[in-house]
Simulated scan of single mutants.
Amino acid sequence: MSRIFGVPVASVYPHYVTKVTKKGRTEDELVEVITWLTGFDHDELQRHLAEETTFEDFFAAAHLNPNASLITGSVCGVKVQEVDDPLMQKIRYLDKLVDELAKGRPMDKVLRA
């Protein structure tokens, strides 16, 4: 089991915010990306952050977007579509979406519209 599985999403979230805002995107756009991927609404996301839900429990409670399988490409040199562990793949999907948002990709493309 990977160490990241037991890490609270709330401990990584500020790094996501910093990454996207440094590149001119907003926290609201980040929230939109996370809620698109997980199926959580804004309040549910805030509750998970406040309760320091681990990545494992966060994604266990999520209803992954049916278009999540359209997320492809590499994160840290690993192709997200080739990650074997289902939980690790979901975490990599999130990382990839945050990367795309930070790189200025149009929101409709990030959300696989």
Rank of each mutant, 00 (worst) to 15 (best):
M1T: 12
M1V: 06
M1C: 01
R3K: 12
I4L: 12
F5V: 14
G6C: 04
V7H: 02
V7E: 12
P8I: 15
P8G: 14
A10P: 02
V12E: 12
Y13G: 04
P14Q: 02
H15N: 08
Y16E: 09
Y16Q: 08
V17S: 04
V17C: 05
V17R: 03
T18M: 10
T18N: 15
K19A: 12
V20D: 01
V20A: 08
V20K: 01
T21H: 04
T21A: 06
K22E: 13
K23A: 15
K23H: 10
G24M: 04
R25L: 06
R25Q: 14
R25H: 09
E27Q: 10
E27W: 00
E27T: 02
E27Y: 04
D28E: 14
D28C: 00
E29K: 00
V31R: 12
V31I: 15
V31F: 02
V33E: 05
I34Y: 11
T35S: 05
L37H: 13
T38Q: 08
T38Y: 05
T38G: 05
T38D: 02
T38L: 09
G39I: 09
G39D: 08
G39C: 11
D41Q: 11
D41I: 07
H42D: 08
D43R: 12
D43L: 08
Q46C: 10
Q46S: 12
R47H: 03
H48A: 14
H48W: 04
A50V: 07
A50R: 15
E52N: 15
E52I: 03
T53H: 04
T53W: 08
T53Y: 05
T54Y: 06
T54K: 04
E56A: 15
E56N: 13
E56L: 14
D57P: 01
D57N: 15
F58E: 09
A60T: 13
A61W: 06
A62G: 03
A62K: 06
N65L: 08
P66Q: 04
P66E: 10
N67M: 07
A68Q: 01
S69Q: 09
S69C: 05
I71R: 05
I71L: 02
T72K: 12
T72N: 11
T72C: 00
T72E: 15
G73V: 06
G73L: 09
V75P: 04
V75D: 00
V75W: 06
V75G: 00
V75E: 01
V75C: 00
C76A: 12
C76N: 11
C76V: 03
G77L: 04
V78Q: 15
V78I: 13
V78H: 03
V78P: 01
V78S: 11
K79Y: 10
K79W: 07
V80F: 00
Q81P: 00
Q81F: 06
D84V: 11
D85Q: 06
D85F: 04
P86M: 14
P86R: 11
Q89C: 03
Q89H: 06
K90A: 14
K90Y: 07
I91T: 05
I91C: 09
I91D: 00
L94T: 13
D95G: 09
L97C: 02
L97W: 08
D99G: 02
E100K: 12
L101A: 02
A102W: 02
A102P: 03
A102D: 02
G104I: 06
G104K: 13
G104T: 06
G104D: 13
R105A: 10
P106C: 01
P106G: 07
M107P: 02
M107F: 01
D108P: 00
K109H: 10
K109N: 11
V110M: 01
A113Y: 12
